[in-house]
Design a protein around this nucleic acid. Structure first.
Lengths: 90, 90
DNA sequence: TAGACATTTAGATAATTCTCTAAATAATAA
DNA sequence: TTATTATTTAGAGAATTATCTAAATGTCTA
């Protein structure tokens, strides 16, 4: 989970995740939403991938990124646990 | 909200928040749960405070920290928005 | 096969973060 | 007032991060 928290700490990476929640995208489609270089985008994507939050598949020359739903939902659970009050029990 | 995400990115700070969810504590009470110096703890507390996640009051020589509930709940909302699926509408 | 396109990797740099010790500030106790 | 306790601030060093350009890799098309 630590890598998930770190992945979410960066606003660019949260924006990438939000974009991907709307559906799969290639790297260049994602890149169109940002001002930094492709190498920098690649670095952010690698962090999201290391956290398990995204999955990739190749489609010809492109790499398609999508949210990894099972991990995303585990993360949602862990994060909401962080905010759950003590008195609320499962 | 950015400072909230940054505050939550560090495991020590998440642990501090968890401790405080169990009730208010002085700095030295919090310190008893960690191995690093008081100065380092102070740095982490300052980040939590900058994010608005905790509030403080003085009690004699001690500073008592507690979770700032209204901000904590706003943060919970923002975080859960991050994880909400597109198709789920409010 | 050669060249073009899409993406990642390597290597470098500047900025930020975590941590420490030492010093400063605030409140209490002797 | 002086000493003691609790906490924060200052200043510095090591580690990490975000970013860049250039080079490498993988795929497609002419």
């Amino acid at each position: 989970m630590q890598s998930v928290w770190e992945a979410l700490a960066d606003p660019h990476r949260r924006k990438i995740l939000s974009l991907l929640k709307g559906g799969e995208m290639s790297v260049s489609e994602i890149h169109a939403h940002f001002d930094f270089s492709g190498a920098t985008l690649s670095h952010h994507l690698a962090k999201l991938k290391a956290a398990g939050l995204v999955i990739t598949r190749r489609k010809g020359q492109q790499i398609i990124y999508g949210v990894h739903m099972s991990v995303f939902e585990e993360a949602a659970q862990a994060v909401s646990d962080m905010f759950r009050r003590e008195e609320e029990s499962p």
